[in-house]
């Protein structure tokens, strides 16, 4: 409305996170890893299933984190890529009898392509406009999956049932436990790859774009290439997560991949700390367990309890789990000195 607002230097929407601060220390990583490997040996199958979902959503949040925390682009459309990945896996397994492990790379590649292509028009948009565009993608996806045209493959509204794989080589593991370790291996692989990606030349290009697009392009970063690349990588990882999700839940249906899922993933990223990759697991735990806790506290008011808990978290730690980790680190350093 006024002339003045045209020349304001906007603060970057996502704050700069230094590269080193994006990961955990060596020792802490080992402890977390040990806990993730050992816990399933002592708990019931249902809890193992929940832990599998924790890892799967963790992957999806990690993917969003690379996009938003890394390259500074918003997305409310992650559920669409998750759905594409899930359906790719389900269709390959059920219609073509492809081994479940082989479907995941296919899901990843297809989603990478989808994300890369979607990144092209999204290049012209930023901030709320990009949020709206990705939001449109997320609302359109369930409707597209229901279309009669694809019904032969997607199963329409009913969806598809996916068989759960048994442990290979006659290993004495239950299906749930095997799937958990399978997921864990993939998660660790993708996590290490993501950390390396953000430390590489491409990762630095992402962050340069996030911090100041104009300056980045002045320094010779190909802004459009890296922005679409970030979209592609993020979509690809989300697709793998979607595929794993389809195997774990044993079922895909259009209504499982609505905008609610995209919003959950977004909340997971904020709670975990934007741009802090290990926080993805914390965020994923929040979106899986807190709605259950809220339901447990009050059935009728579960939405309100969830909202209040979310407010508590963002009031206490506006920067998410990353802030908690930083405080813990400082405390540890102090204790060492004494």
């Amino acid at each position: 409305m006024s002339a003045a607002e045209e020349v304001v230097t906007e603060a970057p929407a996502v704050e700069a996170v230094p590269k080193r601060a994006m990961t955990l220390g060596y020792g802490t990583s080992l402890v977390v890893l040990a806990a993730l490997i050992l816990t399933p040996l002592f708990v019931k199958n249902f809890i193992i299933f929940q832990m599998t979902m924790l890892l799967i959503y963790g992957l999806a949040v990690l993917a969003l984190n690379i996009l938003t925390g890394g390259s500074g682009q918003f997305s409310l459309g992650q559920s669409a890529f998750y759905a594409i990945g899930a359906y790719t896996t389900a269709i390959l397994m059920e219609h073509f009898n492809v081994n479940y492990a082989l479907t995941l790379p296919v899901a990843g590649v297809i989603c990478f392509a989808a994300g890369f292509l979607f990144g092209q028009p999204a290049l012209r948009l930023s901030g709320v406009y990009l949020a709206l565009a990705t939001f449109a993608l997320a609302t359109a996806m369930p409707q597209l999956l229901k279309l009669g045209f694809f019904e032969h493959w997607t199963g329409g509204v009913q969806g598809l049932v996916v068989t759960k794989p048994d442990a290979p080589f006659g290993l004495p593991l239950s299906q749930d436990m095997w799937l958990y370790y399978f997921t864990l291996a993939i998660t660790i692989g993708i996590y290490i790859a993501s950390v390396n990606l953000l430390r590489s030349r491409s990762g630095r290009a992402f962050m340069a774009i996030r911090d100041n697009e104009i300056a980045a392009s002045a320094m010779g970063v190909d802004v459009s290439l890296y922005k679409t690349l970030a979209f592609g990588v993020s979509a690809g990882i989300t697709g793998v997560a979607g595929g794993l999700g389809a195997i774990a839940v044993q079922f895909v249906a259009p209504d499982g991949y609505t905008i609610t899922l995209a919003i959950s993933l977004f909340l997971g990223m904020v709670v975990g700390g934007v741009g802090w990759l290990p926080g993805s697991i914390v965020g994923s735990a929040f979106i899986i367990f807190v709605p259950n806790i809220a339901e447990g506290i009050s059935k009728g008011l579960s939405g309100a309890v969830f909202g209040v808990l979310l407010f508590l978290v963002i009031f206490l730690v506006p920067h998410g789990a990353r802030q908690v980790a930083l405080i813990a680190q400082q405390l540890a350093a102090k204790l060492k000195k004494n």
Partner: peptide, 13 residues
């Protein structure tokens, strides 16, 4: 982004 999460919380409440 934390503010946006706040809006979502308000929505739920």
């Amino acid at each position: 982004l934390t503010n946006v999460a706040g809006f979502i919380a308000l929505f739920a409440i």
